[in-house]
Amino acid sequence: MTERIVVVAAALCDGDRLLAARRSAPPELAGRWELPGGKVEPGESPQQALVRELREELGVEAEALERVPGEWPLRPPYVLQAWRARLLPGSADPEPLQDHDALRWLTPQEFGDVNWLDQDVEAIGALKALQRP
């Protein structure tokens, strides 16, 4: 049996706004939107991977908060886990440095305005359920 590889996605929030990142690569994903993140490397915790990926992809310093309930299959052996995250005080503003060509802060009313990757739609649904009072 192949060991699964976790890919972490950041539900990076600023108040009620959520950061969406438009993919620029690979070609089959280009133009679609996602929660930024990437693979957990050997010896890393998911939280450490999330912080590293946000630094590499967006040039920000962030903190992983809690995991969004659920896990979503990607192409084998990858699975997606989402984490709520926040920018640390004094962090730079996010910029699309790697794998993305645009960023948008979306209010809950705007979540449906972008063409999300399928697994991110499910993660955002779980995030919205987590945030309900």
Rank of each mutant, 00 (worst) to 15 (best):
M1P: 11
T2L: 15
T2F: 11
T2G: 06
E3M: 08
I5S: 04
V7R: 08
A9G: 08
A10I: 06
A11W: 02
A11H: 03
C13R: 15
C13E: 13
L18Q: 01
S24T: 02
A25N: 14
P26E: 07
P27V: 12
W33D: 04
E34W: 00
E34L: 13
P36H: 12
G37L: 03
K39W: 12
V40Y: 10
V40T: 14
P42R: 04
P42T: 01
Q47N: 04
A49P: 03
V51F: 04
V51Y: 03
R52Q: 02
L54I: 06
R55L: 15
R55M: 05
E57D: 13
L58N: 00
G59W: 04
G59C: 02
A62H: 05
E63Y: 00
G70R: 07
G70I: 05
E71N: 00
L74V: 02
L74T: 04
R75Q: 15
R75H: 15
P76S: 10
P76G: 06
P77G: 06
Q81E: 08
W83V: 00
R84I: 12
A85C: 03
L88Y: 09
P89C: 06
P89V: 07
G90M: 14
S91Q: 09
S91R: 10
S91E: 04
A92P: 03
D93K: 09
P96Y: 04
L97D: 08
Q98E: 11
D99E: 14
H100I: 01
D101K: 09
A102I: 01
A102F: 03
R104F: 07
L106T: 11
L106E: 11
T107N: 09
T107W: 14
G112P: 14
Q119K: 12
V121E: 09
V121M: 00
A126D: 15
K128V: 15
Q131Y: 10
R132P: 02
R132K: 04
